[in-house]
């Protein structure tokens, strides 16, 4: 059997918001160049977990994480980890499209420029490449200097994905990227995710179980801060091991 390559290994992750423990002893391995979906009822900790993967939770004052998260042979949570570098290598896309109130071009060029890229030709190339990878280039190539705010919701979301791709990450985290979009825009993002896994590892949080079943290779089911079951998506949706998982995916919860 071919040995699986892991993009990220999460070992015994515990997380507290102040006094309240929100995540309990989570261990999972995110496989490289695959799409991993996290599902579970609201408040189960999916978003909290995905936000640990690039230390976005650092921005929350009272949030405390105790974990070993191995990414590129380094522990993301070690005291000497370079958070800026981690967030460049592990990009994130949020539920609501959040483009900068700038031109389409600037939205993409902003990241690489912050990381020191000054040459215009190089930036032009990055902008084109990123927009192409996010399946947006054809729709916006004639109006790159127009404001990103004028794009539709679905286009804005793909712009955000392009923006994440511009800094050449290894992994992209998506926190319900389609929940604010209409069905057509959703289909486009789903197709895009399928394309992206050729070059990137994708972790997606979704409330839409059919979406998880469609686009992901691996699925984790979370409940009350615990990872109840993690495995191949097909297995999880056809014949899960845990009764709780089955109840949740069949909609027989509570």
């Amino acid at each position: 059997m071919k040995k699986k390559k892991y993009a990220l290994e999460c070992k015994n992750l515990n997380l507290w918001y102040g006094e309240n423990q929100a995540l309990y002893d989570i261990s999972m391995k995110v496989i490289k160049n695959k799409v991993t979906a996290l599902i579970g009822p609201s408040g189960c900790g999916k978003s909290t977990l995905i936000r640990c993967f690039n230390r976005m939770n650092d921005t929350i004052d009272e949030c405390k994480v105790d974990a070993e998260l191995i990414f590129n042979n380094e522990n993301i949570y070690s005291s000497n980890a370079d958070v800026v570098k981690i967030r460049r290598k592990i990009g994130m896309v949020f539920q609501k499209p959040n483009p900068f109130p700038k031109s389409i071009y600037e939205n993409i060029a902003y990241g690489p420029r912050t990381h020191g890229e000054r040459k215009k030709e190089k930036l032009d190339k990055i902008v084109k490449k990123s927009l192409e990878a996010a399946a947006l280039w054809d729709e916006v190539k004639d109006r790159l200097q127009k404001s990103a705010m004028g794009l539709s919701g679905g286009q804005q979301q793909r712009l955000c994905i392009a923006r994440a791709l511009a800094v050449e990450p290894d992994m992209i985290l998506m926190d319900e990227p389609c929940s604010a979009l209409d069905p057509i825009a959703t289909t486009k993002i789903e197709d895009l995710i399928d394309e992206l896994k050729k070059d990137y590892t994708v972790v997606i949080v979704t409330h839409n179980m059919q979406q998880a079943a469609r686009i992901s290779d691996y699925t984790g089911f979370m409940y009350l801060g615990k990872l109840i079951e993690f495995g191949e998506t097909r297995k999880i949706f056809e014949n899960p091991d845990e009764e709780l998982t089955e109840k949740y995916i069949m909609g027989r919860f509570g």
Partner: peptide, 9 residues
Amino acid sequence: YQPVAKDLR
């Protein structure tokens, strides 16, 4: 309803 798991089976 896009049933799954035992429902679908």
